[in-house]
Nucleic acid binder design. Structure first.
Lengths: 108, 108
DNA sequence: AAAATATTTGGCTATTTTGCCAAATGAACA
DNA sequence: TGTTCATTTGGCAAAATAGCCAAATATTTT
């Protein structure tokens, strides 16, 4: 794998990696319903504000969400809605795996 | 976020996390063209066989690929092709970010 | 200007991930 | 059976990630 191809896959992995965390997946899904400020997300997630802020920073650096300061609050928005399509596929991976588990059990 | 919801997002994150690595993204894309054995993938990636084997194991545990031993070789297949849709979206995240960068430069 | 509220950043530790080497296992073949 | 080839596993060290607290910054309010 040459350097150019390597760089391409690294860029792609950065985006996917940014989504690869329970809280960050939650944030993405929540923002798909409309913008939310840090305090609202923190409340829902139930972690330290600083932790949530860092999760938001990861998603923002990856270009998945964008921020908008309005007064004391910062509102976050989903910038690329197509990431929502991930969920359907992830669900089907889970379903496929579950079905296979079932098949294995039936054979017993 | 209650325990049930937490568990759901953790399960989802496990799948996405399994894809969140340059080599593993490469493997997924490569397998979309048809099955490949470990030695072929190792050759293409250019890392240690044991490293590639572990990447494959991560993808298999997540239920994204499946293995089939035929003689001395083990062939891997993409089990859930919808993960390929990720690429298109990832590309559009990259593109959107690039466009924004360009806008910022124009203002200078 | 001081106090209060919202958010980010720095710093630290604990945990996880990565990637190599060496060793073990599985299968084909002389 | 012993040898060779393909793959996996164990183990280790380096690097990255996660989450909390404390401190800094930004904004509004008193």
């Amino acid at each position: 794998m040459d350097a150019k191809k390597q760089a391409l896959y690294e860029a792609r992995a950065r985006i996917i990696k940014a989504m690869a965390h329970p809280s960050r997946l939650f944030i993405v899904e929540e923002l798909s319903r409309g913008e939310k400020c840090v305090c609202e997300l923190t409340e829902m997630i139930g972690a330290d504000v600083s932790t949530v802020s860092k999760h938001l920073s990861v998603l923002r650096s990856a270009g998945i969400i964008s921020d908008d300061r309005r007064g004391a609050q910062v509102y976050y928005t989903l910038r690329v809605p197509c990431v929502l399509n991930f969920f359907g596929c992830v669900e089907s991976v889970l379903k496929t795996t579950a079905k296979e588990q079932l098949q294995l059990l039936k054979k017993t």
